[in-house]
Each structure stands twice: as C-alpha cells, then as structure tokens.
C-alpha cells in the first residue's frame, strides 16, 4: 500500500507538469494579450499611445519575451511560491486567491458531502423499495435534478427564499453582518446563506450519483453472495449495508475523483449568479481578460485539488475492494 501511494505521488507530479503546460498553452491560445486589450481600452478612451509606450507596457508585464521563456520564468517562480502579479488588480496573485480558494474548497467539499449523503440515502432507499411510491417520487426528483441547469436552480431558489422566507440570499452575509465582528448571529447568518449554494452546486451531482447508487445496488442485491448473507440468518439491514452496499459503492468512489471538476465549474456559474466571493468568478474574469498569471495560478491549484481528490478516491477504493489492493 505504501509503495502504491508513493508511485501514485510520482505519477501525480508528472501529470501536474503536463496539466500546467497544457493549461498555459490553452490560456495563451486565444489571439491577443492583456496588453493588447489594455491598449484597446486606452485608445477607446481617446488616449493615443506611441509604439514606445506600448513596448514599455509589454516589458512591464513581462510579455516581451518568447512564450517558452515566460512559461519557464513563471513556473520556476511558482515553485518558489511567487505566483506573479495579477494585471487587472495590480496585486500579487497570492493576495487575491488564497482567501477565496479556501472558500471554494469549503463549498466544494460541503456540496460533495451533501450530495454523497443524500445520494446514498436516496439510492439505497429506492433500490430496496423498488416500484413503491417513494421510489417513483425519488426518480422524478432525480430527473429534475439532472435536467435543470445549476444557474436556473440558483435563481429559482433565490427567488423562492426571498419571497417565501424573506431572506436575502446573495453573497455570504446579510448586509448588516458584512462588516460586523464574528458572533453567533453572524455564524447563523452565514449558514443561512450557505445552504442554497451547497444544494445548487450539489443538485445534479446528487441526482446522478443516486441513480448510479440505485442501479448498482439493484445489481448487487441479485448477487449470489447477498443470498448467502441472508442464508446465514443476518438481518436485512446487515445484508444491505454490510454485504451489498460495500460492493455497490465501488463505482461511486471511482467517479468521486472525476466529479470534482464538475463541482468546481458548476460552482463558478453558481457563484456568479449568487455573488459569492469564491475563486470561480475571478478565474472566469481572468480568462476573459487574459490575466495570465492569475488564471495560471488557479489552474495549477485546481489541478492539484483534482489530483489529490483522485488519489483519495483510489486509496478509498483500495480500502473498500481487496481485489484492487492485491493487484
């Protein structure tokens, strides 16, 4: 197991390098640069820039060198903890992203936990109560969850919360708490704002996972070893949760790692709609504005999060299924 994890860590480093290079190329790919759009903007405002001024701008942002040199300078500084400058904000990248990155991770993890808990409960229930009324109700909810886009769900819930509960749901805090010192009331207010984004971000994932859970569990419940477990005289709960569930959870764990990007990109759209101070909206703007170092830093951190998620999923899988452990 130890050597397995070490080997995986080696692969992760290689993958990370490749992802970084590819990501960098993709960010560079669209024509133009931050300076060009900056020049455009200044010209539109009536300013007239000389070639010398433009060159100076390029130098100032480090965009005068060839791409591979820029990549090397960026990545070597990155490893040393210097993530470069965010053009549009005129601030170091690290200052902009770190507090937001924490919030993004918190959101993603809580919606992951939310979708897993709900998906497992709904999936197991509908598999063990197949063709009953609750099973059909769950199926309808699942299809709604899959079919309704995140941002729409966010809008609907916002309107609903505002009109029915008279809550102000955009942002993280109600206006009176934004600058207030931390207190119990402020925490409660935060929780009040959290549930909508967590549900919205997790909705389609939950719906999909619970469909998968139901289908897998139905398959596993037909297995001979489930019959063996019943033949031992075990209670139905032990049969389902100990003998069937552990075999059915398998495909869910396999998709655990790969469901992270979906959650993170879903989070972006939802954060824009709900005006949340997470990384999503900033990453989105950085890409539009070709704010390279900012976008690049996000990319690397998201890739790291993803790789860690995948490693976690693989370790979990090996723990759940001995056949993988002994390969």
């Amino acid at each position: 197991m130890g050597s397995y994890i070490l080997r995986r860590l080696g692969y992760m480093a290689v993958t990370l390098l490749i992802v970084t290079i590819l990501g960098y190329i993709i960010i560079e790919l669209p024509p133009g640069s931050y300076v060009e759009s900056e020049v455009e903007r200044l010209r539109a405002q009536g300013g007239n820039l000389t070639q010398g001024q433009i060159d100076a701008l390029y130098r100032r942002y480090g965009l005068d060198k060839p791409e591979y040199v820029r990549f090397w300078l960026w990545i070597s500084a990155f490893v040393r903890g210097d993530f470069g400058q965010a053009f549009a904000y005129n601030l170091p990248v690290s200052q902009i992203i770190f507090d937001r990155l924490g919030l993004t991770l918190a959101f993603s993890l809580s919606s992951l936990v939310f979708s897993w808990v709900v998906a497992i409960a709904a999936g197991v229930y509908s598999a063990t109560h197949r063709y009953t009324l609750p099973d059909y109700v769950i199926a309808v909810l699942q299809f709604i969850g899959l079919a309704v886009p995140n941002f729409l769900l966010a809008l609907v819930l916002m309107v609903f919360a505002q009109n029915v509960f008279h809550m102000q749901v955009a942002g993280l805090f109600s206006s009176q708490y934004v600058d207030a010192p931390w207190s119990i009331a402020k925490v409660l207010d935060l929780l009040n704002h959290l549930w909508i984004p967590i549900i919205v971000i997790g909705a389609s994932n939950t719906a999909w996972l619970s469909r998968v859970m139901r289908a897998n569990l139905l398959d596993v419940l037909n297995m001979q070893y489930v019959q063996t477990a019943r033949a031992k005289g075990l209670t139905e709960n032990v049969v389902v949760w100990k003998h069937a569930f552990r075999n059915a959870i398998h495909p869910l764990i396999m998709v655990l790692g790969s469901s992270l990007p979906g959650i993170i990109s879903g989070e972006t759209i939802v954060a824009i709609v709900l005006n949340l101070p997470t990384t999503g909206p900033i990453y989105f703007n950085a890409l539009i504005q070709k704010d390279m170092y900012l976008a690049g830093a996000f990319l690397v951190f998201l890739a790291i999060a993803l790789l860690i998620g995948n490693l976690g999923a693989d370790i979990l899988l090996a723990w759940v299924d001995p056949r993988i452990r002994y390969e």
Binding site: M223, Q224, Y225, Q227, T228, A229, A231, H243, R246, N247, V320, D321, P322, R323
Partner: peptide, 16 residues
C-alpha cells in the same frame, strides 16, 4: 443451512 451452486459468486468479494 444452504450452500449454493456457484462457488465463484457465493462468497462476498470484499470480506475475508
């Protein structure tokens, strides 16, 4: 007690 036809699938793969 009962034992089944398929020894390959009668035992749960994830427990010793």
């Amino acid at each position: 007690a009962m034992i089944f036809q398929e020894p390959m699938t009668s035992l749960n793969p994830v427990y010793t």
